[in-house]
Amino acid sequence: MNGSKISFDDTAVAFGDKSDKALRLMYFLFCTMNYPLITKVGIWCTSTVLKLKLPVKGLIRKTLFFQFCGGESLEGCRTTIEKLKQSNIKAILDYSVEGENTEEGFEANKLEMIRSLEYAATSENIPITVMKLTAFIDFDLLIKAQSGLSFTENEKNKYIRFEKRVEAICAKAVKHGKCLYIDAEESWIQKAIDNVVYAMMRKFNKDKAYIFNTYQLYKKSALNDLTNAHQELRSMNCHLGAKLVRGAYMEKERERAEEMGYDDPIQPNKMACDRDYNLALDYCIDHIDSISVCAGTHNEDSSMHLAELIDSKGVDRADSRVFFAQLYGMSDNISYNLAKEGFNVAKYVPYGSVEKVMPYLMRRAEENTAIAGQTSREFLLVKKELKRRKG
């Protein structure tokens, strides 16, 4: 397989499992997202009608939800997961419910993550699940932990319960032989998250990487954070699990840095971010004996860089220590063409009830509009495939 020409332009492969009807829906959605004002108005209208409890869930279910989510429940994702399997693409189960801030809600999220892992255990096509640690603890407690402020007795007990929730989920992942990706979050809570994640790595990543931390390469410090974490874990004979992304909180990070008068943690420009992202890929492949890596990216250049790196370094394209990952409903030209060439590819498959995943869906719409060229690329690829099919 090594040496085969890889192309991200083959729309027949990219959309091979899409019906004409599904393709026309994609055309409509990405065409709409090409217009930021229309997208903002649409998001506002959707939020409003949901708050007013107007009967629009059916419309959302057939449009945004259909495009970006796998199902409303674990069992509801089965069709999506089986369809991905036919194209040699794995699934990353993602319970995309946000906004809990009670102990009861945190406990319910823990139980849902455990159910998610038990469901993953029934399928070889679900090697990975993902979670945010803010699903299990109050955001302000993480701020306090990172700031080094003293906890009250009540807060201390809450933090202990939080750590136990995370450990129970990690133990369940390892028991079922599944990888668990832990998402990155805002820089003012990230070190507190890192402390918990690395403790889990030291406990569970002795034979291989089960627990993964996420590195946002749009941060100036991310490449150093990655290499330092690896060297420390390797000195303890533990493996590093690294998911590499560019990042999701740039505007919020810059606004807070300016407001509070500290150095902007974000790279000065896109070129610096792209450089560090590819250097991080280089580092991981150079240390593949003790690092497992997931390239979570919709960037074609970085995806091609990793594909060529795998071949040039003599790493098997099917080596389970290396994965490419994209969001369900996006960048199918990357996912499906890489999978066709024998690389490990996984799609994030979010699930949850329509009203509960709306924050996720709105963020997808906003991000597609905000990322320069992302929606235009998706739209033009769909347009090209529709034209090819007519021909």
Rank of each mutant, 00 (worst) to 15 (best):
F30A: 04
G373Q: 00
H230T: 04
C284P: 11
D183Q: 10
L327C: 01
M362Y: 15
L23F: 14
S221F: 04
T129I: 12
K219V: 08
K175P: 00
I266D: 10
S147A: 12
M131F: 06
Y348H: 10
V322L: 01
K384M: 06
K158I: 09
Q67P: 04
C273T: 15
L279P: 09
P265W: 15
N154M: 13
A372M: 05
R275K: 14
R364A: 00
S123K: 09
R165L: 04
A171E: 15
M26W: 15
I128Q: 02
Y181K: 00
N333T: 06
A370Y: 07
T79P: 07
K243F: 11
P55H: 07
K172S: 12
G76Q: 11
H287Y: 12
H176A: 03
N195Y: 13
C69L: 02
Q146P: 00
S73H: 08
T227R: 10
K252G: 15
D316E: 02
E124L: 03
E112K: 09
F379Y: 15
G148T: 00
G3S: 01
G342Y: 04
A295C: 12
A108I: 04
S47I: 11
Y215C: 08
C284H: 11
W188G: 03
E185M: 02
Y159E: 02
F28Y: 13
L244T: 11
S292V: 03
L111P: 07
C69A: 08
L117K: 05
V174K: 02
V196R: 04
A318I: 02
Y210W: 01
A192N: 03
S123G: 08
I137G: 05
D289N: 05
I137N: 07
E155D: 07
D194C: 10
V41M: 10
D17I: 01
